[in-house]
Design a protein around this nucleic acid. Structure first.
Lengths: 202, 202, 202, 202
DNA sequence: GATGAATGAGGGTTCATTCAT
DNA sequence: TATGAATGAACCCTCATTCAT
């Protein structure tokens, strides 16, 4: 028991529990048990349950920002950049899968502060995506569209395939499956060539 | 007060509260107050809080099934059917918006049973979509793809644009905006014509 | 169990426990056990522990006021009035001994609000006494003196003989003993007649 | 840091905190911080918090005994002795104000042992006073009276004027004010000369 | 049948005490 | 020996559920 970093142990346990059971259903007793630590120990590092939660969100925010900053290369083609960043997010996910899950697990907390945390997480990615899409439209790489809506759709689709999917399926999608489908929806569309491009008016 | 259907009153109140505050934050006291009945009365109709919740999911499931059955016309083109059904879901949503919200409000329940309820709701739609996609692929209307993944993506995208979006934006998207973007992603893709179809190998 | 007034039961139990053990050492579990009531029941009547405490102070304040109002007869001699009121307070004590004890049991509560409550209790009596002493001085019934200090001394002496004494002695003082000694200190003094009235300068 | 007496440091810090915040509100963390030692260090000198408290009471008891022994001069007049001792207590108080405050701060401790400590402190002074009063009665300097009750009244009055008063007033009473009032109550009484000495029978 | 007062298990938090360093 | 991180019992409070009316 000598070299264990109890703070990290607790953060990991809490992250796992928040992701798996949500905020309310995560009890400090449970976190303590998962971390194999006394309940009181948690309070040596975090003032309240909310504090513990905030810290997790903050850490995720920070790592996310790094990933995004590293992934966007100004001069590269739109889809190159998109998939490089999404790929990086995927790595981020495999390291810290639970952080991403948090995004959806947080809802009924009530405190504006905690909710803000989650929204900031989402907001950060949306901002990056939106800027990237605007730039893609400006360069003529993608069709004119509402960048805010498309950014939102991209994020949600990404989360759906990387995280939500695992809630109802035992086997996660492979990195290739995820990239192929994102490409399918956001680059090419499903429609077979040769089809008419508008549904007949009903 | 003679002829009021107390059971319906309670179901309506609980639905509203579950949708607005989530499962945990909905107290039986609150449901009783909204329904304007005694707290004990709830227990004459529903054995537990979970029972009450299950009943709401079950009812939603039933109505959903009707919507789907009515919307799918075997002979019509793929995208005709898709948008007719999604449009119908939109109507279903405006009538029972709260039911759909439930899908995300249920997360931290913990009890496998309650989660099952939500998954059944989701599963029903997925099943319909998957069958529809398989049929579309078979008829050559859409590209060959994994119907399960695509169905899942469609549902999530639909929920994202109709429901999730409203959590961070004051104004909901219009029905037209929703349909246009679904079409954009699932029919045509974002890429401008004239572009190369694969990202450069990294 | 039919006709019991649970609110009164709880108030009585809490009063007893606050008086005996003090604010902090009184646990809601203890109050519940003394009152023979479920812990949750307390919270049906009182929002918090502090609320419960406040209610007790408030009730004491009210009864105290009645006693004082009834005991002071404007025209009567000073010591008649003094002993009538003190006698009445003694009755008040035998009915509600615990309320008076509260005055000293409240100290380390911390919340300004709760402390106010106790100070109000003390302040009410002090106010009455001070007015009465001023009137006694004005009529020449007692020597000129600082009414505020004398009022404070009277109250503390009264509480010392009626309440504090019992903390270290098994048998309370009799009503006669209390009155005799109050008379001794506040009317006549201890000094034997024939003595010189000032201590020799040291 | 070599030559500091850690035990004394801790005793001083604890005394200050007990006096200022009371027994319950004094945490071992706080004592450690005030004493500028590690929390564990306290436990090398004192087995428990109660032990620490007891030691403080014992020390106060000892100093008190010295004060009393020095103040009583067998041959002097009663009131000379009384005021010399009370005066000395006042000095004792200005040196160790906190010890005296302790007397009232200890109330909600609950443990019979700790309460005993306080009672011993009180008992010591009472014993001295009682002996002195008995002697005064024997010499005819003061009226026959119950020495135990009078001693108790004197102590309480003394504490009331020196300590309790400060809790509700910004300015402490001066030494002269305290002595004058003690004389007023215990020597001469409040009643104007020329008054009848018994209240009219009610 | 309808009610809501009563309940107690379980939640977050504090703090006296221990013990590995 | 001195330390303070770690601990868990015990605190106050919430709320799903029961049951006498």
């Amino acid at each position: 028991m000598a070299g264990v970093d109890r703070r990290a142990l607790i953060l990991k346990a809490a992250t796992q529990s928040f992701a798996q059971f949500g905020y309310k259903a995560t009890t400090m007793d449970l976190v303590a048990k998962i971390a194999n630590v006394g309940k009181g120990t948690i309070y040596t590092f975090f003032k309240t349950k909310e504090d513990l939660f905030d810290e997790i969100v903050r850490k995720a925010l920070h790592e996310l920002k790094s990933v995004l900053d590293l992934g966007l290369h100004e001069g590269d083609p739109f889809f190159d950049n998109l998939f490089r960043v999404l790929g990086a997010l995927l790595e981020f996910r495999s390291d810290h899968e639970l952080f991403i899950k948090l995004q959806q697990e947080v809802r009924d907390i009530g405190t504006a502060k905690a909710l803000d945390g989650t929204h900031r997480l989402e907001g950060l990615v949306l901002e990056y995506l939106q800027r990237h899409i605007e730039s893609g439209v400006a360069k003529g790489e993608i069709k004119p569209c509402d960048p805010e809506i498309v950014a939102y759709a991209m994020l949600k689709m990404y989360v759906a395939l990387t995280t939500d999917w695992n809630k109802i399926h035992a086997n996660p999608l492979t990195k290739a499956q995820i990239q192929d489908h994102l490409m399918l929806f956001f680059a090419d569309g499903l429609r077979s060539s040769g089809e008419i491009s508008k549904p007949s008016t009903s």
